[in-house]
Write a protein that binds this DNA or RNA. Structure first.
Length: 582
DNA sequence: AGTTGCTGCGCG
DNA sequence: AAAGCGCGCAGCAACT
């Protein structure tokens, strides 16, 4: 059962097509079961239980797969109206993957996308994939209706786009396994889009009074707008005295640098790690100032006012926001909640926060990708780095970790660089795998994650540098190539880890929904950060939620790699407060 | 006055 | 001058 939706998200001119399939190579003319056009504009937008949400809720009982241009255009308003959906296909996110995937590179779909980026200076994606016009919150008076209707995909365009994507997948490659992986990626990405909207809707439980207490403890009472808090003011006074600079603004790197130089502190920048080299008495208060100033500007009272409402922090997640497949976020720095203020993240009464993270995900993904059985043996340990250390770094865990991270990031110098030969001797397959990705990237080739997300083509700079003639230009070209090599080296690992995490998340959502459908108590996904999830659950649901998290992790492993002897353990903490999670 | 880029630091 | 990967954001600096 498939449903196509074509309408503006305000619900006007909803068109629904119900068919036994969608146009595809094997089924070019699907049997149409019913077709309706509902004009479903709520009379009181946002309040009326009728209109679009009611129509969608009705149709959801048939358990369709909703196919829409962008989940973000539809789903938040539906959630707001209390309508949760089971599954969807996000044309925009899927199209972006298919347009660049090495698995579909030979298909007309990808070639059309490539042609468009070549022809078009603005590098615009296919028309149907363009972002919608900006939100019309100023009212229709200020909108250009012609422009809007031009950008809004019609039912016909959605059908054509879906058919083109299906065909691209069908012809992905003769390797059926790759086709399955790509299909899995599209499903996981679409599920991710729904989860992102649901998590934004739910929000992270945030106790404002606990946050304010942390701020008061560190910074003093809340200052008037535009003023430094008491503790920062005191440190500023001290710094001015110690550095003999009565007007110093410690927030200005230039002023600060000059003041440091005048006092014989010869630093090339004002970064923490460089300042730590000096033993001058001004350094300690300066570092303290920087720490507190960061808290004040990034997560202080202003942040609290802007981002926390009614006990919830509701950031916007940007699925597909990173080329590797990781999520990005917009507003509030959702993916950078500092440890310092995690104490403000607190479960509701009668609830717990279940914080789970995939331990050492990226090196484990590398083991699986490279099928390095020697490293797999070391990874049987709950602590992979300790396992590696025991087999060749004299038991020095810190060294083993640095070597492995260096291999995944492309370290060439420093201690990590020096450790590389030793790592390569013991684990030639794992190291060879990332080395090969690096060589490919240097040569301008693309690399691809486990499920089929490919790296972007080389930059314009890379192409230009290829025509270098002089020795000087050649050095520059080599540097650009090596830089791209480090990117593609990391891409295969980071991208495949993102594949794993997307499957983990989708599988977890399915299980949490199943619990709820059973009538059991269930938790709610409220946060996701690359390799970590947070579930907010009633006390009685904690055990079943933990089980769901662990089952989902196993399912993700098998979906990506099949049954292989590599563990992907998750560490789970059940806490009231996020700062007790790690 | 508004825009763009840089510096520095938070997270994985 | 080169530099281990990927991000977002605030405030300063340098402009138009």
């Amino acid at each position: 059962m498939f449903l196509l939706l074509a309408a503006h998200p305000d619900g006007s001119a909803l068109q629904e097509l119900t068919a036994d399939g969608l146009p595809s190579p094997g089924n070019p003319h699907p049997r149409i079961i019913s077709r309706t056009a509902a004009t479903a504009v709520p009379e009181n937008p946002g309040q009326s239980p009728t209109g679009l949400p009611a129509v969608v809720r009705e149709l959801e009982q048939r358990r369709p797969r909703w196919i829409w241009h962008r989940t973000q255009d539809w789903y938040p308003a539906l959630l707001e109206a209390g309508v949760e959906l089971e599954r969807c296909y996000d044309l925009s996110l899927s199209g972006a993957i298919l347009a660049h995937s090495e698995f579909t590179a030979h298909t007309p779909y990808a070639q059309r996308a490539e042609k468009m980026t070549q022809d078009d200076d603005l590098q615009q994606p296919p028309r149907v994939l363009q972002p919608p016009p900006p939100p019309a919150d100023q009212g229709a008076l200020f909108d250009d209706p012609g422009l809007q209707s031009d950008l809004r995909p019609t039912l016909g365009e959605l059908r054509a786009e879906y058919a083109a994507q299906q065909e691209a997948v069908a012809h992905a490659t003769t390797d059926g396994n790759r086709r399955q992986r790509l299909q899995l990626l599209l499903a996981a990405e679409s599920a991710g889009a729904m989860i992102a909207a649901e998590m934004q809707h739910a929000g992270v439980p945030w106790r404002e009074e606990l946050h304010e207490q942390i701020l008061a403890d560190h910074l003093g009472p809340r200052p008037p707008a535009g003023h430094r808090p008491a503790k920062l003011e005191a440190l500023t006074t001290e710094l001015r005295r110690l550095l003999h600079s009565p007007a110093l603004n410690p927030d200005s790197p230039q002023e600060l640098m000059r003041a440091l130089h005048r006092n014989g502190i010869e630093v090339k920048s004002t970064r923490q790690w460089e300042l730590k080299e000096s033993t001058h008495p001004a350094i300690e208060p300066l570092l303290a100032y920087k720490k507190l100033a960061r808290l004040h500007t990034a997560n202080g009272w202003t942040w609290l006012d802007a981002w926390v409402r009614n006990g919830r922090f509701q950031p916007e997640y940007v699925v597909g926001g990173v080329v590797s497949g990781r999520w990005a976020s917009r507003g509030g720095g959702a993916l950078q909640i500092p440890r310092q203020i995690r104490g403000a993240v607190h479960a509701d009464p009668g609830h717990k926060l279940i914080v789970a993270d995939a331990s050492q995900l990226e090196p484990r993904v590398l083991v699986a990708l490279a099928q390095d059985s020697t490293m797999a043996e070391a990874a049987r340990d709950q602590d992979l780095y300790a396992g590696i250390a025991a087999k060749g770094f004299g038991g020095d865990r810190a060294k083993a970790k640095m070597a492995l991270l260096g291999a995944m990031y492309g370290a060439t110098s420093g201690e990590a660089g020096r450790l590389m030969p030793q790592l390569a001797r013991t684990y030639p397959r794992a190291v060879g795998f990332v080395e090969q990705a690096a060589r490919a990237g240097e040569a301008g080739k693309t690399v691809t994650s486990r499920l089929g997300r490919s790296s972007p083509p080389p930059s314009e700079r890379w192409f230009r540098s290829q025509q270098s003639t002089s020795a000087e230009e050649q050095r520059r070209a080599d540097s650009i190539a090596r830089s791209r090599g480090r990117f593609t080296r990391n891409f295969v690992v980071q991208g495949s880890a993102a594949d794993w995490a997307a499957c983990w998340l989708a599988e977890l959502r399915r299980r949490l929904r199943a619990l709820r459908a059973d009538g059991s108590a269930s938790g709610e996904l409220v946060f996701f950060l690359h390799d970590e999830v947070m579930v907010h659950a009633p006390d009685g649901a904690v055990e079943s939620c933990i089980q769901a998290i662990e089952d989902a992790a196993n399912a993700a492993k098998e979906l990506l790699f099949g049954r292989i002897p590599v563990e992907f353990p998750v560490s789970v903490a059940v806490v009231d407060s996020y700062d007790n999670a790690k």
